[in-house]
Design a protein around this nucleic acid. Structure first.
Lengths: 179, 179
DNA sequence: GGAGCTATAGTTCGAAGCGTACTATACAGA
DNA sequence: TCTGTATAGTACGCTTCGAACTATAGCTCC
């Protein structure tokens, strides 16, 4: 009954959260859901993600069963232990420091011209913003999806803030350079 | 003379940039300098960082020589090829998408209470902000350090923006919860 | 009715990255 | 000269990563 001392990572908790929202699901379903929600604050390559449900099942946090028809894919579902582990982690106060990997700033650091870099980047944030706003609209106001909605709202605010800051900078540069 | 087809990573360019600014230096010196500048936008664990100068030297982008006295540490310096590779990369338009890893949002997604999470986080950003402001003051206005200054200024703005957004949120929560 | 096309749903595998723990030198003060 | 602390790394095993490959399902056009 007692689970093996499997190390749980952020990715593990992402899987547990998604299963809590969706009920029984395949790894593929979960990956789709991830991409429409928390992936922006917790990136996971799909090869890593696909391996995770099996690990969690081995640790007793998920159950695993075969689909009946079609492809006979594996369906995973939360156990009580899984639910408890998730709850405990979400309420614990420890928080790893945030990490940002931004090649644009690295290039500016190396002497690259900030203007084209920020133009490329603001374009990226504009697209991301539109994407997240689309997801947010699709979520509606179901209270079950509170966490999803919250993370999408954070994403919208975050991308909007950065986008506006970059646009302000670019506008000031254009003004200064104005013949 | 032609260098081997070594794959250059962001970390490689961080090393090249730092050497361009500092002249001949040991891996330790470089790591110190990294921590006081670009590390906030390009995190590198020290074991990874220490290995990098030797790789770059093998590829012909750095020269390597022994210190004369004391610990006889290895001193690395940019070659012309290294300088060119750095310049070319900094001016090229490709830019990998930015990545943020923020466990706080993951916990909120999982149903954790946002208030303690954002309190912890805003404390972290406050400390980071003070740290970066200290570095920025120490850099002064030497034009050689333009890239360093720029990256520190971006860091200050970024952390200040996030800190203020979190404080606004916490204040609004406190008001709503009033008595 | 089967040949090909596209979307879906993954797996394999070697390389790179990572963190813990350990090592070793210099130097300052007791 | 011993002892502690800051400096300056190295060793090593596990985890993560990404590129490429595999395989199934349904759709369409002939």
């Amino acid at each position: 009954m007692t689970s093996k001392p499997t190390r749980l990572t952020g990715t593990s908790y992402a899987v547990l959260s998604l299963l809590k929202l969706s009920g029984p699901a395949t790894p593929y379903d979960l990956k789709q859901a991830l991409e429409r929600s928390i992936e922006n604050f917790w990136p996971v390559p799909h090869t890593t993600f696909y391996a995770e449900p099996a690990r969690l099942a081995a640790a007793g946090l998920l159950t695993e069963r075969q689909e009946d028809g079609g492809r006979r894919r594996k369906l995973y579902a939360l156990t009580d232990e899984g639910r408890d582990a998730l709850q405990e982690w979400a309420n614990s106060p420890e928080l790893a420091p945030p990490q940002l990997r931004e090649e644009g700033v690295l290039k500016i650091f190396a002497g690259g011209d900030p203007v084209p870099i920020l133009e490329t980047r603001s374009e990226w944030h504009r697209a991301k913003l539109a994407e997240l706003e689309g997801y947010l609209e699709a979520v509606g106001d179901d209270p079950l999806w509170e966490g999803v909605r919250a993370s999408l709202q954070v994403g919208v605010s975050y991308n909007r803030m950065l986008l506006e800051a970059m646009e302000r900078f670019l506008a000031s540069q254009a003004a200064t350079a104005g013949s």
